[in-house]
Design a protein around this nucleic acid. Sequence first.
DNA 1: AATGAAAATGGTCGAAC
DNA 2: GTTCGACCATTTTCATT
Lengths: 167, 167
Amino acid sequence: MVHRPVPFDELDRKIVAALIANARTSFAEIGADIGLSATAVKRRVDRLRESGIITGFTATVRPAALGWRTEAYVEVYCEGAAPPRRLAEVVRNHPEITAAMTVTGGADALLHVRATDVEHFEEVLERIRTEPFIRKTISYMVLSHLLPDSPEAGAARPAAEGAADLR
Amino acid sequence: MVHRPVPFDELDRKIVAALIANARTSFAEIGADIGLSATAVKRRVDRLRESGIITGFTATVRPAALGWRTEAYVEVYCEGAAPPRRLAEVVRNHPEITAAMTVTGGADALLHVRATDVEHFEEVLERIRTEPFIRKTISYMVLSHLLPDSPEAGAARPAAEGAADLR
DNA sequence: AATGAAAATGGTCGAAC
DNA sequence: GTTCGACCATTTTCATT
């Protein structure tokens, strides 16, 4: 997964900024803003995607509007050495885990978990704690967002869409 | 900021799913998949945006490809009572803070911070700790992602784009 | 209320330079 | 990098149910 460095200039920077601000902006409009033809913008976007700088285009949603009203960070402590490969498998078993990473400090991993409500969150936590080599967890429930427009506040991964049914 | 409940059916769910998977999918293509005309899909997307269910469309990028190679979660402890309003102001002073929330547990807030490297991260941390009523911070550096496709792994807020210059 | 069909405008994308 | 042309998508208007 090593990406070779790829030329990236001021025009690319502006294109990426425009697409982060609105992924549906037309290449023609971006081109007009930065002084390039639509075709040139398209070729640069194609290159930015192929080189792995742009990884995709997604809609951002308010999870609460789809029934995901509860959110927490969970520190995970494992028995003995916890190989990240094995941890990643565990994480993929639980669609409510929307982000997971290994971190410095006492915990082996930090999980971001979304649930429909506190009861659902408790159920998820019990499911995670039943996994073979998880020793303990410490949860921090999110109370309110201080940057309401951050990606973490609004994004939902596709695996979590089922909750739309539950509202 | 209270959103009235709005009708949301199975077709809306599929439209949202399609746009989360690819924000640039055409209305005609979504319509063909779910049995609706492009016009009907457009009208539903317009309504989903107006009702605040869809908050926007964004490009996802690999921050590392743009020079943001360091990432951490930072617990913040304040002097005395920390009104979230005041905390939010502090957070907005530091563009490297990409997400921030109040949480249960000992800390008053949890921050997600992106920096170009460890030196930059140290500088950000010192800047945050100089803020009037911050008492202490505890940092957890992110080592590796266990769900590489999660929004937290790939998204960057526009305020952080400057780093593209630094690579 | 929500849909589809039609028409005008505007965008995409390959080919050629 | 650009222009051109064919095709496709978006958006408004209007008629239908």
